[in-house]
Simulated assay, not measured.
Amino acid sequence: MLTFSLAQVSAGAGSVVDYGLMVCCRQLLGFPLFWAIAIGGVVGAIINFTLNRYWTFRSSDPKAGYTSSLKGQLLRFALTVAGSILLKYLGTYALQRYAGVDYKLGKLAADLVVSVLFNYTLQRFWVFRRAPK
């Protein structure tokens, strides 16, 4: 439960940056929704990875017994982020297009679902997986 809570704090920090950049790119710079979500998602993911590696999962500690090196974790994390951005975009787009929900609210809803069900699961059991004892 502690790991889940720490992961949610890390995700929250990344999400604040992600959301702020998305709105800025969309509203101020006029970017298409996909690119606004992608830019915010990448920058938010960098914050999230850093917090998760050094704080939530403490996988930078060689004694912690993780199965992947930094390179392996980065590759797995990048694949997770790509899937996450796509799912968040599709959720946001579907809510906007088919339910008439403003993209800013739709993004919050999509973020919540994707972060808990997709991101946490993959980060916990794939990206920052511990070696069996």
Score class of each variant (00 low, 15 high):
residue 1 M to R: 10
residue 2 L to M: 07
residue 3 T to S: 01
residue 4 F to G: 11
residue 5 S to D: 11
residue 6 L to H: 07
residue 6 L to Y: 07
residue 6 L to G: 07
residue 7 A to P: 12
residue 7 A to K: 12
residue 8 Q to K: 02
residue 9 V to Y: 03
residue 9 V to L: 10
residue 10 S to H: 00
residue 10 S to N: 06
residue 11 A to M: 10
residue 11 A to P: 11
residue 11 A to T: 09
residue 13 A to Y: 06
residue 15 S to L: 12
residue 15 S to I: 12
residue 16 V to E: 14
residue 17 V to G: 12
residue 18 D to L: 07
residue 19 Y to R: 08
residue 21 L to V: 13
residue 23 V to T: 12
residue 23 V to I: 14
residue 24 C to N: 15
residue 25 C to G: 14
residue 28 L to S: 14
residue 29 L to D: 11
residue 29 L to R: 13
residue 30 G to R: 15
residue 30 G to D: 15
residue 34 F to W: 14
residue 35 W to K: 15
residue 35 W to S: 15
residue 37 I to H: 11
residue 38 A to I: 13
residue 38 A to V: 13
residue 39 I to C: 15
residue 40 G to S: 11
residue 40 G to Y: 11
residue 41 G to T: 05
residue 42 V to W: 07
residue 43 V to I: 14
residue 44 G to P: 04
residue 45 A to Y: 11
residue 45 A to W: 08
residue 48 N to V: 00
residue 50 T to Y: 02
residue 51 L to W: 01
residue 52 N to V: 10
residue 54 Y to V: 03
residue 56 T to P: 04
residue 57 F to A: 00
residue 57 F to L: 02
residue 59 S to C: 03
residue 60 S to A: 03
residue 60 S to W: 01
residue 61 D to R: 00
residue 62 P to E: 00
residue 64 A to P: 02
residue 66 Y to P: 02
residue 68 S to C: 08
residue 72 G to C: 12
residue 72 G to W: 09
residue 73 Q to C: 00
residue 74 L to C: 10
residue 74 L to Q: 06
residue 74 L to H: 06
residue 75 L to N: 08
residue 76 R to A: 04
residue 76 R to F: 01
residue 77 F to L: 05
residue 78 A to W: 01
residue 78 A to C: 10
residue 79 L to R: 05
residue 80 T to S: 03
residue 80 T to F: 02
residue 81 V to K: 08
residue 81 V to D: 04
residue 82 A to P: 02
residue 82 A to H: 02
residue 82 A to G: 02
residue 84 S to L: 03
residue 86 L to G: 05
residue 86 L to I: 09
residue 86 L to D: 08
residue 90 L to H: 08
residue 92 T to Y: 03
residue 93 Y to Q: 12
residue 95 L to E: 12
residue 98 Y to C: 14
residue 99 A to K: 13
residue 100 G to Q: 08
residue 101 V to E: 12
residue 102 D to L: 11
residue 106 G to W: 03
residue 110 A to S: 11
residue 111 D to E: 06
residue 111 D to C: 01
residue 111 D to V: 05
residue 112 L to F: 12
residue 114 V to S: 06
residue 115 S to K: 07
residue 116 V to D: 10
residue 116 V to L: 10
residue 117 L to I: 05
residue 117 L to V: 05
residue 117 L to K: 09
residue 118 F to V: 01
residue 119 N to C: 00
residue 120 Y to C: 06
residue 121 T to Q: 05
residue 122 L to K: 07
residue 123 Q to V: 05
residue 124 R to W: 03
residue 124 R to N: 02
residue 125 F to V: 11
residue 125 F to M: 13
residue 125 F to D: 12
residue 127 V to D: 01
residue 127 V to C: 01
residue 127 V to K: 00
residue 130 R to F: 05
residue 131 A to Y: 03
residue 132 P to D: 13
